[in-house]
Nucleic acid binder design. Structure first.
Length: 311
DNA sequence: ACCCCGACCTGAGGGC
DNA sequence: TGCCCTCAGGTCGGGG
């Protein structure tokens, strides 16, 4: 699901409810995500205070006070939602309402550690795999496809862990420029679109924003990476930054199920120029948008605005 | 060192 | 209604 803007939006949404607060409860209902979560993880996290919540590529990280860092990835379908703790005054009606309506709760893999009837919040949904509770909120990690990741790693060796060690530059920092992009493209004849989704070239650009950035840069997605000129790389880097920045400002893109942590929908999808618009007229020139699979992912472009690549 | 492709999962939507 | 197929915002690892 989420590319950089959606992860960044999610991070900003959960931050006020997790950062600097003790985890009063950690519930792992489904250990089998992208990798199996070790059995002692919940216990290791409980009563820890999370600090320095941040994003690296599409990972969300948070330091625990016990020398470990929490690493979280939303995969394709992952979502974090915040349920703020009800104030004592406003909760009695809610609690009464809930105790009788326990119908929609699916059978959890391991038995929940807490009776659902005691929860002040709505019943857990299908695919609510992990629940982090602080004094201010309950944060739920829901992930239908379970490509997401939840791992606790030693902070001291974090950056040398394979998950993070080989990541390229952050696109919204000065570490990513037309020059660094141009250099990273030199040794590959793969389509530029595929390279934009390569995390060693630049992080955070996924299938949507690769197509959108290339449209804005006027570059055909099939252009061999090593034929991109320095000038084209400058233009492309600028448009990647602008596209991602605008998408963050719009709260990300909601396709099927992305929601911000507070349940609001992103609206950047309304400004897509090419993604998902196969056969529809280009907004700039009315030529029908084309699509083809590149890097095992559907790719969209305007054959007029994005001039043919050299053979 | 590259590059290609299947695998990991569930669910939504279309065609019949 | 139901079945069967394809497709979906991301990685990872094996083999050529």
């Amino acid at each position: 699901m989420p590319e950089l803007p959606e992860v960044e939006t999610t991070l900003q949404g959960i931050k006020p409810y997790l950062e600097g607060l003790p985890l009063t409860q950690v519930l792992i209902r489904t250990p089998k995500l992208r990798t199996e979560i070790p059995a002692d993880t919940a216990q290791k996290l409980t009563s820890q205070t999370l600090t320095n919540l941040r994003r690296r590529a599409k990972f969300i990280l948070a330091d625990a006070s016990n020398g470990h860092t929490l690493l979280l990835h939303l995969g394709m379908s992952g979502r974090l939602s915040v349920l703020p703790t009800a104030t004592p005054q406003s909760s009695p009606g809610v609690a009464a309402e809930r105790s009788e309506g326990g119908t929609a709760t699916p059978p959890p893999h391991p038995a929940p550690l807490t009776p659902l009837a005691l929860h002040p919040n709505p019943p857990l949904a299908k695919h609510d795999h992990i629940i982090l509770t602080t004094p201010k909120a309950e944060v739920r990690f829901n992930d239908a496809r379970r490509f997401g990741l939840f791992a606790l790693l030693p902070t001291a060796t974090l950056n040398s862990h394979p998950y993070l060690a080989n990541l390229g530059p952050e696109p919204l920092t000065n570490a990513f420029t037309g020059q660094t992009l141009h250099t990273a493209l030199q040794n590959s004849g793969q389509p530029i679109k595929v390279k934009l989704m390569d995390n060693t070239v630049v992080v955070g650009v996924g299938n949507i924003y690769a197509s959108e950035s290339l449209f804005r840069a006027g570059l055909h997605p099939a252009t061999p990476a090593n034929t991109i000129t320095r000038t084209q790389a400058e233009t492309l880097a600028r448009h990647i930054k602008a596209t991602l920045t605008e998408a963050i400002a719009a709260g990300g893109s909601t396709l099927r199920d992305f929601q911000q942590a507070d349940g609001q929908l992103g609206y950047f999808q309304h400004t897509f120029s090419v993604y998902g618009r196969k056969g529809q007229p280009c907004l700039a020139c009315t030529t029908p948008i084309q699509s083809a699979v590149m890097g095992q992912r559907n790719t969209f472009w305007c054959p007029t605005c994005q001039s043919e690549h050299r053979q």
